[in-house]
Simulated scan of single mutants.
Amino acid sequence: MHNQFDPNNKIIQLLLQGMGMEDSGNPEAAGLLFLKAWSEATDDFEKFVAAYYVARHQKIVSEKLIWFETSLRFALEVNDIAVKSAFPSLYMNIAKCYEALSDPDKAKKNIELSHSYKGTPSDPGPFFHGTRADLQVGELLTAKEESNYKPGLKMNHIYFTALISGAGLAAALAKGDGPERVYIVEPTGEFENDPNVTDKKFPGNLTRSYRSQVPLKIVGEATDWLQQTPEELRRWREKLANNQGEIIN
């Protein structure tokens, strides 16, 4: 059973298509794609994330509540670090439904549950950092480097992920002509969920993307990850070029 976030997963792709429809002002088409994703979802992870999008599209609060509670039910079945990061958002959405339905006790209970899941991520890793820089085991990766994606932007944090495919994508998109490298890294202190992805497109931090102000220590190099096809890379580059959103630094 896969609980990992995979951009090539059929259900994730349907949801991304639906979000694209939302962005281009076509909520009806988006709603149909979300329902299609729900009807084709086969495991708890897919059902949790599909139900979340169906919930967001409901006009009637009681229906919205049913779908958010369905999403939560499957999320609780998955018992996965990435999915746990969605609990604050899920419980908060459920609380808002109860508030709208004038049930303050249930609203309060869900707000408390939402807060109980917030805090420092407890992801044990292993962690990866993708780049084209040629580095050695033992070296430290530090913040204050120039962004790979926005020229002239000095980053206040160093970014990393627990999904090797995510680090591989970062390496492929990084500046420079050197070969793509994915280093196995250890944070040397506290880290937080990357706010550029957390609760943005997906609930929580399903891509297990993190950032830290303290250095990352290189402990090894990964050699085996799923490479993007040239077509997929072209699409990602287009997405980055069109991304007018501000980078939260």
Rank of each mutant, 00 (worst) to 15 (best):
L15F: 07
G204E: 01
S209Q: 01
E63W: 08
I218D: 04
H157M: 12
P195V: 11
G119I: 00
V137G: 05
V185I: 10
T229C: 09
Y91I: 01
R208G: 07
V214N: 10
L216G: 08
M155G: 06
G168D: 03
M155K: 00
E99M: 04
A222F: 04
T207E: 14
R235S: 13
P195R: 11
F191L: 07
L233R: 10
L32C: 00
K200G: 05
T207L: 09
R208P: 05
P104I: 06
L15S: 07
G152C: 12
A50R: 05
L72A: 00
A50W: 11
F191Q: 02
L153N: 09
K144G: 11
L15P: 04
K200H: 05
N8M: 08
I164V: 14
I12T: 14
A95Q: 15
L135V: 07
K10Y: 09
D105A: 09
T188M: 07
A50H: 09
L173T: 03
K84E: 03
L72P: 05
E238G: 01
G18P: 02
T223H: 04
L135H: 11
Q17W: 02
K144Y: 03
M21V: 06
N193H: 14
K201R: 02
P230H: 04
I218S: 05
N8H: 14
W236E: 14
P151V: 00
L140D: 10
L135R: 13
N193F: 10
V197E: 02
M19T: 12
A30S: 04
D194G: 06
Q244L: 08
A75M: 06
N26C: 01
K109P: 08
V182W: 02
E231R: 05
V78S: 10
E40C: 11
W38K: 13
G152N: 01
Q13A: 15
R132Y: 13
R208I: 01
A51V: 11
P124V: 08
D103Q: 14
H129S: 06
D177K: 15
R181D: 13
Y159N: 08
R208S: 09
S102C: 09
Q227T: 05
S71C: 12
E192G: 06
Y183M: 07
Y210A: 09
E221K: 13
L141W: 14
G25R: 02
A143M: 03
A107Y: 00
E28M: 09
D224M: 00
S209E: 07
P179S: 09
N205I: 08
A143I: 06
E63T: 02
G168A: 09
V78F: 06
T120L: 15
H115R: 06
Y91C: 08
F128N: 00
G245W: 10
